[in-house]
Design a protein around this nucleic acid. Structure first.
Lengths: 205, 205
DNA sequence: ATAGTAGTTGACTGGTTGGTATAGTGCAAG
DNA sequence: CTTGCACTATACCAACCAGTCAACTACTAT
């Protein structure tokens, strides 16, 4: 378990940050190096190309997110709570980033994939891989909701895929319209797709 | 009603084609000029910047698509037929492009918007504008479906937005996974979201 | 014929790009 | 003390980028 050099990690984190905030094509290697405070020589010591860096950076980003996902989707929790927690994390994360930068960020994996899937096969494959791992959480959630009789579903996998597409679409639209309004209607839309009743409003104000 | 020069039109069409096939960032002005068989000087005679060209090209692309949309969504047709025709056009269009280039193209407006919404406000606004015009068709369709008692909906606009997000998400996923499988499940997903029964299979083979 | 307009041409600029080359540094083990 | 290795530093490159320019052509209205 060799630990990675500080410069390498800095490059990875900076890359995610910048690419997520704008796009792969509009962020140059020099930009990333400058912001990370690392020399270009080091960049090409650690990564053999810009594309390689992107793959590694998004892989790392997903790794960091996984522990959170595992907590949210813990089988300990009742599935309805998992669902609420998941949607809440998405909404709050998007809002927080919006407040911080004034731009709706959307889903970083989807944005990167959408930009580069026709040009860079390695990046496309990595994004596909991460997205599929992400959708597994939803799949199991749908299965558990059905097992508890909370939803009717004849094909759990299909329903999960539909939810996942909807989710990606909402985040994309939110980014394009640069408005929180779309993510705000996300929980309602998800519940409708699942055929769930709206939850009682939180404790009176 | 002055008609536009052939070179200008060629540039617009070539631009859409190339940007849709790859991305805004990976297509250079030189590329577009070369493929359009137009000199760079002419490019900057017609458009004051690359970004301007993109806006004009996508506007034109939408204009060309509008007549088709008007036909599909004609109030003459029963809403269920409109829905089927619309979904069919999407699916067939995506498949045709896939056969032609080996790549799932996704929605050109969404891809461009997703790539550039945080960097180029004019492009972002244009994409938002086109998407909102597109979603109006769906909105009226939902309204008509509800008026005929074919679906239950308390909030037509909201349901239309949800459908539209789902649609965008499916096309994005199809592009990222470069697979027709996602667009193939699109009609089923849309019907489920609307609470419609599956249509009887077409005449026996 | 002339002048104006609309479009065309290709050479050019200055800056940026992803990527390389090579010398050097700090540090730890032998 | 020295060797070797992980990393850093900086200078450099050719290709490419968006955008400019002034000269040129072709057509049209007077």
């Amino acid at each position: 378990m060799k630990q990675e050099s500080a410069s390498k990690v800095k490059l990875l984190d900076t890359a995610i940050d910048m690419i997520w905030a704008s796009s792969y094509g509009s962020v140059s290697v020099d930009d990333i190096c400058a912001k990370a405070g690392v020399n270009k020589g080091s960049f090409y010591y650690f990564f053999k190309s810009k594309s390689d860096l992107a793959v590694a950076a998004f892989e790392r980003h997903w790794d960091l997110k996984r522990s959170l996902m595992d907590r949210i989707f813990s089988a300990q929790l009742p599935p309805l709570e998992r669902l609420e927690a998941y949607m809440n994390v998405i909404v709050e994360d998007q809002k927080a980033r919006f407040r911080a930068v004034g731009k709706m960020p959307g889903c970083p994996f989807c944005s990167l994939g959408s930009e580069l899937s026709t040009q860079d096969e390695k990046i496309r494959a990595k994004v596909e891989n991460i997205l599929s791992r992400q959708s597994k959480y939803i799949e199991s959630l749908v299965r558990d909701l059905a097992a508890e009789g909370l939803i009717e579903s004849s094909n759990h996998k299909e329903l999960a895929e539909e939810l996942f597409s909807y989710l990606g679409g909402v985040l994309m639209q939110a980014k394009i319209e640069n408005s929180v309004k779309h993510v705000e209607r996300l929980p309602h839309g998800v519940r409708r797709m699942l055929g769930l009743k709206e939850p009682a409003p939180a404790a009176a104000v």
